[in-house]
């Protein structure tokens, strides 16, 4: 058998990989670099849009600094996120304050200038707001 100091053998070498695993696998919170940058300005200023084709209509820039999830993730998954939360709220009574639609409107002040513009562009017609009120 090889011999190395018992300190390394016992505690340090056992704990280090555990910590490394934790650091690797814990999802990192969205950093300041992930702040949503709406691609709308791309067309008018001549710069390529950040989040889609160049003729995407300009979207209202949100007021807050950070979304509940990274902006990239929200662009792709907000519909499933909202639908899942909706079912959980209706059927299980799960109400998470941060994930509530009421929390969206703290940053995205205008539904018309944010949600509707993009929905019209991609030709989807979610009917949430036929019955629900977008919080002011």
């Amino acid at each position: 058998m090889v011999s190395y100091p018992s300190l390394f053998h016992r505690s340090f070498f056992r704990v280090l990989p555990l910590l490394m695993g934790l650091v690797l696998a814990i999802p990192q919170p969205a950093s300041a670099g992930d702040v949503p940058q709406q691609g709308g300005s791309g067309r008018s200023s001549g710069h390529p849009a950040h989040n889609g084709p160049a003729d995407h209509p300009p979207l209202e820039v949100p007021e807050g600094r950070e979304c509940v999830q990274p902006a990239e993730w929200m662009r792709r998954n907000h519909m499933d996120f909202l639908k899942h939360n909706r079912d959980m709220a209706v059927r299980e009574g799960v109400r998470v304050k941060d994930d509530s639609l009421k929390n969206c409107s703290t940053c995205h002040k205008s539904r018309e200038k944010f949600c509707d513009r993009c929905h019209a562009y991609v030709a989807v017609a979610p009917n949430c707001f036929e019955c629900h009120d977008y919080p002011k």
């Binding site: 056992r14 990989p17 555990l18 490394m20 695993g21 934790l22």
Partner: peptide, 10 residues
Amino acid sequence: TLAAGVLLAP
């Protein structure tokens, strides 16, 4: 141990 850390992280 590394695998256990990854499992525990969430």
